[in-house]
Design a protein around this nucleic acid. Structure first.
Lengths: 209, 209, 209, 209
DNA sequence: TACTAAGCGAGACGGTACGTCGCGTCTTCTT
DNA sequence: AAGAAGACGCGACGTACCGTCTCGCTTAGTA
């Protein structure tokens, strides 16, 4: 209904199609707020140090206008991140291997954006705040579905074994990459080389014989 | 279990050998403070949300006593994480599959060790603070080495293919498990069933033909 | 009981006789708003603490509907107070002492009439707002006149000394009672016993010798 | 123990004589806060419009430092008023009539001070806020005791009848005066003439025959 | 034994940001 | 054109912690 750039979570608005009564929320404000967040972050403010007060001032907006839309700082950050993650990657669909690599490389590319400065803080909040979790899932799901489609198509076309554990394989590809890219989990592994090494490592287990 | 004297930054203490005048610092306080930090983290407090005020209260210590020893919250966190020790799982060494499952199940038993309960709170700070990162790695490394040993032994005994990408395989097993257990990354995957599904999924790619 | 049409400031309505175009203002709204104000005041809300937001909600009315009629909170209060009417006590007229006691006991029965429940909330505003003061006096005057009549009748009939300071005596009877009943001015004096003690205390000074 | 000028309510401090632990409250802050209140009021800020935020800024003090001492705006105002009401009136003790007049004139003189702008708002709050009431009583009691003493001395010396209802008489003198001075209760009565008229009116009832 | 110096707990200090509430105005759709 | 609903920018509320600063009290080593 409303769409702040590629805003995924959006205000906690009723999912009805019929118009809500009263003055509608200002799209200008939505934009100004998210922009203010990204501005401040890109000027060196830490995600953790970012204050709603500063966002409101920068956006030329009342604090209440922010709290009307997002329940807390984290949720706002999720939206801000989502808005710069941009559209879903486009897969060519000719080769499973190629499609997987393309998608994984896109995850890795997150590092080069402002998102990497924000995401870890959100990850740590995920298991404390179920509402935030819901928002985050809502952002991830389309991406997850995309990869699921690639694997399923691979099975249908005989490229992949039909008995593979699709969701587990997906997580085995993405989770290590995220852990490396955002958290530097294992210092021995260079993030940029991860997509290939991950696909190579799992390939014998999923490729059709 | 804990050992503040091996801490990394340590109290800002004079490097002289001759005794300083006045009342010496209380070792009880050192311990109580670090313990309080670990307690709070293991009770779900985020590293970011951890307040010195709460640490002081929990430790039964004045705030000044903390600031006398550590210049800021981050330094205290580093020391606290550095003090985590021990608790490695014991592997039987008879079968690679069995050993992997045992280690993964230990990761999954999030509530069993304080160390693992502390992890989620720390995650968000990891990429902000390279010193903290180093300490965290120091805690992880023995566990990593243990799993590395299991895989290498499997290769030597011919159970596993000799060309597997050891570190990547390890990360592909552990990262998804951590992502599910601590962050509920993918809501479709039940954490308790993950160890088996992960090993099953990667097995055809690592088992000797 | 209430009569908004006799209000003092009245809605900021055009002074033309010819019908204004568009939808006419709702009389229901006028009434509901004033009633809401009186309800809130009688429930203990201070005039100062009374919020337009609460009035609008209670009246089931939009805020704009209030601001369309009254320029600010004070004007609304004035109108609300002005709308209070009726409920004068009935005096038997056989004995001055008895009549005074009856009237004073009525003042003490704070919860019996909405008018008296409203008084404390209004008190604080009185000296800020002369318009409000005028309205309040308009409500008090009939009650004052009633008591004045009792005293004058007492003088005429020889029950009271002819030289008493009528208005001062009245205030000496009523003000202490109000101070005790509404403000608990002196914690040593039980409000319910005040009417008798007041009349007894002044009696030797006013009774005919 | 502590004494902000003539501060009556003071911080809600334990009434023990033994020192409280921790850093003691700053007397400078006490003074600066009360001064800031009086400054702002005397610059035209309404009691109702006075904001703690502004007081803190003006006093060069953190908001918490104010809230540590006073539970709310009203209590702070009571103290501020008390601090300018100054010391108790000095009675000569030669004639009851003269002493009463002197004390009543002092009440009337309140009008000329900044207190009159504050007191009515406090009066209206009295019956809502028992804590405030306690504070207010604490300020009134010495004044009440003073008048009680005058009347008792009058009885002992045979100037007054021995059977008068002391507390009621006191209230009959003070309450009307306050009602006129601060609230302009009865527009027919000129405040400045009240002391004499009040004493004259009650005198025949209390003077020894 | 007394003196000196630092550490100790407690908690107040001037601040910053929080998330909430109400202001008086505005914008939407409905009557 | 007025109705209700409710969002808007604004500004104060009272709370929580920050990192610093007194307090009076240990608890040592030194004189």
């Amino acid at each position: 209904m409303r769409d702040v750039m590629t805003n995924v979570t959006g205000p906690a608005r009723v999912d009805q199609d019929r118009k809500a009564p009263g003055r509608p929320r200002s799209a200008r404000a939505d934009g100004a707020i998210v922009d203010a967040v990204l501005d401040l972050l890109s000027e060196g403010t830490t995600a953790e140090a970012l204050s709603i007060e500063a966002v409101a001032t920068r956006a030329g907006v009342g604090k209440a206008t922010i709290y009307r839309r997002w329940p807390n700082k984290e949720a706002l950050l999720v939206d801000a991140v989502a808005s710069i993650k941009g559209g879903l990657p486009h897969v060519r669909g000719e080769s499973v291997r190629e499609d997987l690599l393309m998608m994984l490389r896109q995850v890795g590319r997150v590092d080069s954006t402002r998102a990497s400065r924000i995401t870890p803080g959100i990850l740590a909040q995920l298991h404390h705040n179920s509402e935030l979790q819901r928002c985050y899932q809502k952002m991830l799901e389309p991406r997850r579905e995309l990869m699921r489609g690639v694997l399923r198509r691979g099975i249908e076309r005989g490229e992949l074994r039909p008995d593979i554990d699709v969701d587990v394989v997906m997580t085995m590809l993405v989770a290590p990459l995220v852990a490396q890219t955002l958290l530097h989990w294992n210092p021995n592994l260079e993030p940029s080389a991860m997509p290939e090494r991950l696909v190579d490592a799992i390939w014998p287990a999923i490729a059709a014989p």
